[in-house]
Design a binder for these strands. Structure first.
Lengths: 202, 202, 202, 202
DNA sequence: ATTTAAACGAGACGGTACGTCGCGTCTTTGT
DNA sequence: ACAAAGACGCGACGTACCGTCTCGTTTAAAT
């Protein structure tokens, strides 16, 4: 009924007006995530580390899941990709950023447990997607669009699926198959979608 | 105390000799998974449903995670792919099976949380990969090998990466991006890796 | 900071000069007390009901306990007992008023919890006794004194104990034993202390 | 649905089969009560002191209130009054026990807050009355009955009211009026109800 | 009329304790 | 030897309410 409640209604998304110590909380959350992983980190631990009381966190986030969701969305690099003139290079740059996101300590194995937790708060899951993924996907889409304009990519390309191929392969490798993430991975995946070159063994 | 402990030492792997009510436990575990998801299902609930006592489960599995890991490995379809003579068709068939696995209720969002849980019991994670993934990946690899023999696929293809592209895209779409899983997805992905056709919008 | 602090120093007693909305606060406090009981009523609820901010309450009262203590003292009837010429009748009248006080919704079960709360703020408990009880006891004592002058009561009667017998029986019945408070109770108790008639069953 | 739930249904009453460390819990509860009072004692503190986990307490008692209610009922002396042949002496003995109960550290100011807390769990309040009061009142009633048989007390005496007068006066004095509890109090009250002697100042 | 000091509204916050949940362990008792 | 029954330790979760604090804004008395 107050503004607080209204700002929380969105779920995982960043509260429109947050607590006073936003920055400290963000840092503390990502730290805890990196140190202990999602399941073993505790809300109280985050509070202590941030110099804030647990109740304050629950005033602004509905659950542990939405706090972490917000932190990941707010804390991971998300800058747009510079236009170097080469569609391939730009996509590789973007994919490397994505790889960094998925292999950096905080997010690494946080995402799966997080997604699982958020599955029980349905609105929150969608909110997390919007705040975490959309910015990243928009950056990629922009790069692809430039590629289309240059004629490097057909105009009717299914951008969503391309992004799922690029990010999904990385994500799956990191979490499920556990195969190593070699340095050339980004190039090989971009070449696959761009020029149809089936990946070969190094 | 001897064989019990020994059989559990392996972690997530299937116990060398199991409890009496294996089938009921398997069914109960998958049911619970499908109904509540990994995080919200409870070991006690599984026990009750299986008409077994919780302690019995812990006698044979080291943790909730290893129980679920075993159930997924034992319960999801895993049959080898028939050789139809068409590499493309066989790969599509395999991928459709994978999609079914990832979109069927039990496994749907169980895998991420499971992987996260298993991450804290180090050996167990690897054990799960071996028991759950290897069979599926072997099937795919066999199909690819036949494709190589037929000359449809270059001999030095990076099979591991191909599998990550196929399965990873599906996995990511289901769990992270949340985009719909249309019927033609399997063909489009196989065509991408096989003939380099960039996916276009329908 | 000067007068405010000074006026609060007294504890449970009525502030020398109060907030603007005294009446609304009094009503809201007694209402809340009657509806939820002492333990379950909340200061914030009282504030809202009174159209006042919580901080205002804490500006004038040191604690929930002292607020309620003040409200009970200010809100319950406390008029002196008229002199009808009959000592018995006057005492019965007084005792009936006491019964009303203890059985009316607000005070009913508020007193015990209140006393318990006030026990931790030592001075406040005594302050509450002075402001709440003394007026009532003075009324009774006056009636007894008239009885002594009339020769109805021996001059060396222990007035304090008589009052404890009258009020205590009622209080205990209401709160502890839970036995019903029949209509003739006042007469029977007065007759007991006045003429030594042991109470008989109706 | 299990026996545990069934045994708790009664509310404040003693569980039919209790936790393993009943004695330690009883002692710890009464200790905590005596040291800190009802409001300031904590369930977790009781658990620690008893060498037990908080969850164990909540497994057997529905709330802090019912735990304390049980402890008071189980921990305070409740023995029957010996028959000395003198009705007056026996009643005095009984009343002295009651005074002890109400002035001993644990119960002293625990009862009011307890009663207030229990007011919100209605069944529990009644359960507490049954387990705490009934034994004591039965003892008194037995003594009165002997007095009737001896002809010391009229047969149609209202025993319930007599007990309320005796215990209520003591209770009220202790908690509300705060007047001192002198040594002769028991005799004076018994004489009041027995022989109609109005209490005089010492 | 204007200044000025106190009271007030708004609401975030620290703190304490509550009561809950589910995992995994252990003991007891059959079978 | 295994299994049923179920109490228990443990750790964390999320909630509630108290009482404090800061910051603007209103009110009302004093100049």
């Amino acid at each position: 009924m107050s503004r607080t409640a209204a700002s929380r209604a969105g779920g995982a998304g960043p509260p429109t007006d947050g607590p006073r110590d936003r920055q400290a909380i963000l840092a503390a959350t990502l730290d805890a995530l990196g140190e202990h992983g999602y399941a073993r980190m505790t809300v109280e631990g985050v509070a202590t580390r941030a110099g804030v009381h647990k109740a304050t966190l629950y005033r602004w986030w509905a659950s542990k899941g939405s706090l972490v969701g917000w932190a990941l969305g707010a804390g991971l690099s998300t800058g747009p990709v510079a236009d170097t003139g080469s569609t391939r290079d730009d996509l590789v740059t973007w994919l490397r950023g994505t790889i960094d996101n998925y292999t950096s300590t905080p997010a690494e194995s946080a995402l799966p447990a997080l997604l699982s937790d958020l599955a029980s708060e349905p609105g929150t899951l969608e909110g997390f997607r919007r705040s975490f993924l959309d910015a990243r996907r928009a950056n990629c889409a922009a790069t692809v669009t430039r590629g289309i304009e240059r004629g490097d990519i057909p105009a009717d390309v299914d951008v969503g699926l391309v992004m799922d191929v690029l990010a999904g392969t990385v994500f799956y490798r990191q979490l499920v198959s556990g195969e190593p993430m070699d340095a050339a991975l980004a190039e090989r995946l971009v070449d696959l979608v761009l020029t149809g070159q089936i990946p070969r063994v190094a």
